[in-house]
Write a protein that binds this DNA or RNA. Structure first.
Length: 715
DNA sequence: TCTCCATGAGTTTTT
DNA sequence: CTCATGGAGA
């Protein structure tokens, strides 16, 4: 046996070497579980001669999958391209592409709907049924259906919603579409209806490995069980304390269920942490200890105590962002680089102040979340063009772009087409030839048809390079002209469209076959690509992200911001102990992202819904214990002590008004001359609480600033 | 059919 | 506050 596994500690090594039978690894944060997984796979291939394609490794994100593949490829000589390392959704997608045609009425060329698309389909379904979209809000219905499909609900609340569900399912089938949830469900359906197909995959995947097992839902677990039942070589890795996806149907209980279903499961604990300092681990342990229903486990480390985590409470959200930005600058001078920092928050809207301030301070950053590249309207439009060009019968794509740019082909005409298509059991594209001639927009429709045919000829002829395709499409269809006419915003969107060219060039190199075949493969996989997968890790920039996005990542310096009741724990989760326990796990995940320095900040007041609210410190601060934090707050301590003893924020309470006034003290008044580090000298033109408005003259104009911000002094 | 304005609704987390 | 949607008018 090689010395491949020498770099592992005893528990890790045991986990990597126990290759046969069911194994469960309880891996605390930072205990090297990814390391164990990669070395285990390398061990299977290198030392035991297992073929890479007999290994199935399920990760939580595509990004994690790619990273793992890369790390494995450095450890083994064998070609691992054919090894299955992917998310549940990607794996199911691949299985369905091969075998879904066994199921009556399904075709392997299905298109995967993203969130937006499926809400759109539901909306049309509701309208078609003659129901009101006010009463049955498409978003809510989608949520209901998704809950049902993820076993979070065993039946629908009312029969109408159930009817919508049935109609939606029928509609998807007719249009050859699957939503995200279907990827898992249809695979199970396929395996149940066709045991032969299941056996085929059972024979292929002789070693199963599931990462982040605590976040699997009922059906994902079922899938694991089905696939692994035969060989029973199932290796699951998880941490009950990091289960943060119950809103999506994840079940921590699957950990226990696994042990019941596979009685001879070997359990291995990884408790040594290699990431954080003792001080950071201490507060992580203290917080999570408040969760009653947990199997006790304590992380320890050999590393030093390190720097005491820092707490700071600022007057408002703007001040909080300024503090974080100042600390980043200060630490940069001590030798850190931008990529060492992460700002982590509970929900996306919190990021705004940080974006503003970082931008103004010239600190480079990227935001995770928001609209992903492939979810952008313009990108989806062009992809829809390509889809339609390759497959005229793709009516879903047809509808998306038939009037984009505007061609005077409105809802009335579409309705005519749809009716005709249904009557003749054909696609919308074919229906163009069958509807009655004439009428509003009929000629535009013919034009559109010829444009698509022309584009198809262009695309088929292999003489044109892949990188010319997008350009040709946007020129020929008038899409480019449309964007050009939109001004600055259009310019931005044009850039996104042009970025697609890069994707096509990648496509050209990545896949085999004719141009069309390559494009088809790209289109089939694109729905599962998320922004995080595309983001370049290596960039030397500060990262802004949610706790959920931060899972599995680590940074030298971590700022956990907006530690306020109602934000974190989220106001949506303050009702049951169950919810609070999940918020606490989120907190635990956040703390354990930090390697060297941890900052926790909050603000006394914050704008929510355009209103300024007084905020109260998160209960998690108390659980962490203020004594284990170095308090940098500059507001008088007694103000704090009071706010600590008060009940959480309730809108309209008199005491809150008093609280707000107290923090509004500033000794700067209208007419004062002030100096700002970056903007130079200016005159105060307005004072509103602790926010002052200063006119700085032509170069910088009028700015709203925090009066007691360190970068401002009165002259 | 398109454009513009008003109104209202909503920010928890995502494959 | 900000975005999306829908209605009215051109």
């Amino acid at each position: 046996m090689s010395d491949l596994l020498n770099g592992l500690n005893e528990a890790q090594r045991l986990a990597a070497e126990t290759t046969e039978g069911p194994v469960m690894v309880m891996a605390g944060a930072g205990s090297g579980k990814t390391r164990v997984l990669t070395y285990r796979i390398a061990h299977l291939i290198n030392d035991l001669g297992v073929m890479p394609y007999n290994i199935l490794a399920v990760t939580f994100t595509n990004k994690a999958a790619n990273e793992m593949k890369e790390r494995i490829s450095k450890l083994v000589d064998a070609d691992i391209q054919r090894m299955w390392v992917a998310t549940f959704h990607s794996i199911c997608c691949r299985i369905l592409r091969r075998d879904i045609s066994h199921l009556e009425g399904f075709k392997s060329s299905f298109t995967i709907l993203d969130e937006e698309d499926s809400v759109k389909e539901i909306k049309e379904t509701i309208k078609e049924m003659g129901l009101s979209t006010d009463e049955y809000k498409p978003k809510n219905v989608k949520c209901e259906i998704s809950s049902f499909k993820n076993d979070m609900k065993s039946k629908f609340d009312d029969t109408t919603t159930e009817q919508i569900y049935f109609a939606y399912e029928r509609r998807l089938k007719e249009e050859n579409l699957l939503d995200f949830d279907d990827l898992i469900l249809k695979t199970i359906e396929l395996f149940e209806a066709f045991p032969d197909v299941l056996h085929k995959y059972q024979d292929i995947f002789t070693y199963l490995m599931i990462d982040e097992f605590q976040d699997t839902n009922t059906y994902q677990y079922k899938l694991v069980k089905m696939l692994g039942e035969k060989t029973r070589n199932i290796f699951i890795v998880g941490d009950q304390d990091q289960s943060i996806y119950s809103f999506r149907g994840a079940r921590i209980e699957n950990i226990n269920k696994f042990q019941r279903d596979f009685k001879d499961t070997k359990v291995i604990m990884l408790e040594q942490n290699y990431r954080s300092t003792q001080n950071i681990l201490d507060i992580a342990n203290r917080v999570i200890d408040n969760n009653g229903s947990r199997f006790k486990k304590n992380l320890f480390t050999d590393s030093k105590d390190g720097i005491k985590p820092i707490f700071n409470k600022l007057n408002n959200a703007y001040g909080e962002a300024c503090y974080v930005s100042d600390e980043i600058k200060r630490l940069m001078e001590m030798g850190y680089s931008y990529k060492d920092f992460a700002v982590i928050y509970r929900s996306n809207y919190i990021s705004r102040n940080f974006e503003d301030v970082l931008l103004r301070q010239g600190i480079p950053y990227t935001i995770y979340g928001g609209l992903s590249f492939f979810a952008r309207k313009e990108v989806k439009d062009i992809l829809a063009y390509i889809r339609l060009i390759i497959d005229y019968d793709d009516s879903f794509s047809f509808k998306r772009i038939v009037n984009e740019p505007k061609r005077k082909i409105g809802p009335a005409l579409i309705k005519r087409l749809e009716d005709c298509a249904r009557e003749n059991n054909c696609s919308l594209f074919k229906a163009i030839d069958l509807i009655d001639r004439g009428g509003q927009g009929y000629n535009s429709l013919l034009d559109f048809k010829f444009t698509i045919i022309e584009l198809e000829e262009y695309l088929s002829s292999e003489e044109h390079k892949m990188n010319e395709i997008v350009d040709f499409i946007i020129n020929r269809t008038g899409y480019k002209a449309m964007l050009k006419a939109e001004g600055d915003e259009g310019e931005e969107r044009l850039k996104n469209v042009e970025e697609l060219t890069t994707v096509l060039i990648e496509t050209d190199e990545m896949y085999e076959g004719t141009r069309k075949e390559k494009l088809m493969q790209m289109l089939q996989e694109i729905a599962l690509r998320t922004d995080a997968d595309t983001k370049r890790e290596g960039d030397d920039v500060v990262k802004l992200m949610t706790y959920h996005q931060a899972k599995g990542l680590e940074y030298k310096v971590v700022f956990l911001v907006a530690f306020e009741e109602g934000v974190f724990p989220s106001s949506m989760a303050s009702f049951s102990e169950r919810d609070i326990e999940e918020e606490r796990r989120i907190c635990y995940v956040g703390i354990t992202r930090a390697r060297e320095r941890l900052y926790i900040t909050c603000a006394s007041e914050r704008m929510v819904f355009g209103r300024t609210n007084s905020m109260f410190e998160s209960r998690f601060l108390k659980e962490i214990g203020k004594e284990s934090l170095e308090d940098k707050t500059v507001i008088p301590k007694k103000v704090f002590a009071q706010s600590n003893t008060k009940k959480p924020f309730v809108p309209g309470k008199a005491s809150d008004v008093v609280e707000t006034k107290r923090t509004n003290t500033t000794d700067i008044s209208i007419g004062d001359k002030v100096n700002h580090k970056a903007f130079g000298d200016g005159t105060v033109v307005a004072v509103n609480g602790d926010v002052i408005t200063v006119a700085f003259g032509e170069a910088f104009g009028v700015k709203k600033l925090l009066a007691n911000h360190p970068s401002i002094r009165r002259l």
